[in-house]
């Protein structure tokens, strides 16, 4: 019993046809081609699929697509503007805040939500914000450096 729903994704209105059992991650990846919504554990334990729904971070694997009807969704694909990386993305590039890159979009989305509510986080606050995002390559120290550096760049405007 597929249903047509409207979503606003990365500032564009989209109409998708979803089943009640389609997760938001499946919908964004398979129907809208947003592969930056990384799915690893598929049950909320790794944070790789983190996106923003109405500005708040959400594990896209744990939400049904149909639940998000009418909401505004931001994925990693919506961060860069006109080919210019967001300062958080730029900081991850410069500071090597990644190795294999699978966790990177989730890390950046959580960091973005954090810096929105707390523009000058301490190192400990950054660590605690990212506690649910697993980096199996162990790039955590450089990920933390990237977030702190981005925070500074964003504060300095």
């Amino acid at each position: 019993m597929a249903e047509r729903i409207e979503l606003r994704v990365n500032d564009r209105n989209q109409v998708v046809e979803v089943e009640p059992f389609t997760t938001l991650a499946e919908c964004l990846r398979n129907q809208l081609g947003l592969i930056g919504v990384r799915v690893s554990c598929n049950q909320g334990d790794c944070g790789a699929c983190t996106i923003l729904v109405d500005g708040q971070p959400v594990n896209a694997c744990m939400e049904l697509a149909i639940e998000a009807e009418g909401r505004s969704v931001t994925t990693i694909e919506g961060l860069a503007r006109n080919g210019h990386l967001h300062p958080i993305q730029q900081a991850f590039v410069e500071h090597h805040g990644m190795q294999c890159g699978f966790c990177t979009p989730g890390m950046i989305m959580v960091a973005r939500a954090l810096l929105e509510s707390n523009p000058a986080p301490t190192e400990q606050e950054v660590k605690e914000a990212l506690v649910g995002n697993i980096c199996r390559c162990g790039s955590y120290p450089k990920i933390i450096t990237s977030v702190l550096s981005a925070a500074q760049t964003m504060r300095e405007g």
Binding site: L34, G36, T75, E77, L85, Q90, V93, H96, T104, I108
Partner: peptide, 10 residues
């Protein structure tokens, strides 16, 4: 990283 751009943009 050569593929850093692809990694941070997903």
């Amino acid at each position: 990283l050569k593929d850093a751009y692809e990694k941070v943009t997903g």
